[in-house]
Design a protein around this nucleic acid. Structure first.
Lengths: 207, 207
DNA sequence: TTTTGTGAAGTTTTTCACAGCG
DNA sequence: CGCTGTGAAAAACTTCACAAAA
């Protein structure tokens, strides 16, 4: 597999979403210029990103929307369905897994974990909620590979350490406003609302 | 004001959070090495980031936790309270503004907007919900400067265009899974759950 | 003629390595 | 001696500019 830089992967996701939209709108052909304009990216960047995966466009014409959509899908697409568990069944966590993002062939949310007795033992958004103490056993039994973390910052690292000790965790998507450290081989991506807001404020202030 | 690169601002937010924690734990002094280890960042990067804002550490000793905390707070801190509105009072939107992130001196959530008749006219999480059609007037009247966007992708650009036309919007924090284009002078930061998940998947797959 | 694909140039960001100071 | 602060080197990423193809 070709080595792809992270900013490129991020833009590929955007290209893919846009192409799906253009396809729905019935557009057949698109130029790097148009893609760039619609996403706030330079046309040359779009071409460079796409060129990493072979010559997919037609010179003088542009890219065939359907073909490029399938092409990017193959690059990003998942070969299997990943088994996911959510730790922290609060408002944010539940809103997230109920979100369309997880209604997807690539994911199957298998279990929730919380410490709140009101939640433990019940089904939330169609998924059984277990007590945090049962997490390691359940993660093993259910062969969970991806952990979604939506617990308070103070609990995040503990959750991660515990979950990683189950041996099966390969990736973590964290919504906890803190940095978590994992052993090599466990990828972490973090959605940090707090950090994004602070950045926005910083640049608003200095303008 | 010194020009600061975006990755640096993002790390400053992390330093600040960590310093708050260390302070609570009673630690008085910290080295760039320790900060780096706790955040998964190289010590040299920590020192470079901090050095942009003057010599704040003590050679041979490290950084005084309390002093550095205040120092970073002054860099990031906001001179005023920003007036915020949320568009899209669905599960995610409400979970977000109810989140501790917005319980903060720097923000005041003044209004919600939605098109659902069940929500319009009511108070949600202590804030009045208005109909989307009243948005421009309300944004002007309430002098809203920051928009939090939590609407479906298909509605996002329309919301932004409408809101920007009120004339007062300076920044947008978007949770909508799409790219929005704004005129120069309106900053956008985007929290893209979908994109983060896709990135995670991509790198899990290729490992 | 139009628009891609791509080396080369440019810019930004990170890392190194060591002087300098407590 | 230990750890910061910082130029200089390296790496990563973006943009340019133009040859090549439809």
């Amino acid at each position: 597999m070709i080595k792809v830089a992270e900013p490129t992967v991020e833009r590929l996701v955007q290209y893919h979403r846009l192409l799906g939209r253009l396809q729905d709108e019935g557009q057949r052909v698109v130029s790097s210029q148009q893609v760039g304009d619609l996403l706030g990216i330079k046309a040359s960047q779009v071409r460079k990103d796409l060129s990493y995966f072979g010559e997919i466009g037609k010179r003088g014409v542009g890219y065939h929307v359907g073909r490029l959509y399938e092409h990017v899908l193959r690059i990003l697409g998942s070969p299997k369905t990943w088994r996911v568990a959510l730790v922290g069944a609060g408002n944010l966590g539940v809103a997230l897994i109920g979100h369309s993002v997880f209604k997807n062939q690539s994911f199957c949310v298998e279990a929730l974990f919380d410490i709140d007795p009101k939640k433990v033992g019940r089904e939330i958004a169609g998924v059984r909620c277990w007590h945090f103490d049962e997490m390691i056993d359940q993660l093993k039994e259910r062969e969970i590979e991806i952990l979604v973390l939506a617990v308070p910052a103070s609990a995040a690292q503990l959750c991660v350490d515990k979950a990683v000790s189950s041996g099966g965790i390969k990736g973590i998507l964290s919504f906890s406003p803190t940095t978590v450290i994992t052993p090599k081989g466990v990828l972490v991506y973090s959605v940090d609302v707090f950090a994004e807001l602070e950045k926005l404020l910083f640049y608003l202030k200095t303008e």
